[in-house]
Design a protein around this nucleic acid. Structure first.
Lengths: 162, 162
DNA sequence: GTCGCTGCAAAGTCTTTGCAGAGAG
DNA sequence: CTCTCTGCAAAGACTTTGCAGCGAC
């Protein structure tokens, strides 16, 4: 996996996450369904940023009996995103990808050609952000950073096709 | 690169940009049209990241005589993006936004109470980002960073009103 | 003159919505 | 039981593409 300076590990246990989710639903008069659980679980078990379609596909594979509809995936992702349990990233031509917010904080390197996303954490940048916020009288809550560029694979590809 | 200042200034003159564009077209056996020029010019004169629709709208306003079609905007943006003259970003919500790669960028501090946006540039972070991209074999094009928090004004306000 | 370009509208994608039956609380 | 959810399919929103005339070179 290879993050830049630091080991990236999951900070929240699945059970904690699940009960947060249930609480969230309860608080809003919503219902806990098997489809919603499976979506959360699949996001949790994935190390990648998933498109709605990819997520749907994974679920269909693992739980074919549920016959979960893509619309439900979209609806649940919106729900989770609105409650800040997942974050979405967009890039290039390929649409939007989602990941659980419960994982350790990290920033993203996004290839504008192929859409591949690499995660990294850099303490120096984290540090610096706090200082900047301080210096400007800002009480920092969170941040997001994306570096866009062309990944090694795509560089090699365009070097050889020309 | 690596200057001591944090001036935000435009790095490329419009004329330089235009001749680069013409060269690009020539090199690929493409033609220089008034629509293409207007699209480049509008991108250059905008301080914001533009959606295809917003760009089209600006052009319609400024050059109603051309009656530029949205399809041409899309086609030209793709062309410019493929040649790395513009980059596309998604700042979260919906849709893709484009901006000229020729401008200096800046990062954003966003107040989650009042929505005020403060821009900043920090050389140390810039530097660090390049190093990270390098270390991961990435050819960096651009990055975007947002720090979310509560601005001084809003902190004071809630301190006094409570 | 030759081709590439353009606007238009039609065709694709991706995402959201309306509906009627299913299921959680 | 009630009221939300779900899958399905249809509708929307956003982009791309085919075409025939137009315009750069």
């Amino acid at each position: 996996m290879g993050s830049y300076t630091d080991f990236t590990e999951r900070t929240i246990e699945y059970n904690k996450l699940l009960s947060d989710f249930k609480q969230l639903l309860r608080d809003n008069g919503l219902k806990f369904t098997i489809q919603r659980e499976v979506i959360l679980e699949t996001l949790y078990n994935s190390d990648e940023h998933l498109t709605p379609e990819a997520l749907h596909h994974l679920i269909q594979e693992k739980h074919p009996d549920l016959n979960t509809g893509i619309a439900t995936v979209y609806r649940t992702l919106s729900l989770l995103e609105d409650s800040n349990m997942v974050t979405s990233l967009s890039f290039g031509a390929q649409g939007k990808k989602y990941e659980l917010g419960a994982k350790d904080h990290h920033d993203h390197l996004i290839c504008t050609k192929c859409g591949q996303i690499t995660e990294f954490v850099d303490d120096e940048i984290e540090e610096r952000q706090k200082k900047i916020a301080d210096a400007l009288g800002f009480k920092m809550q969170e941040h997001s950073m994306q570096i866009y560029g062309i990944c090694k694979k795509c560089q090699d590809k365009s070097a050889t096709t020309h």
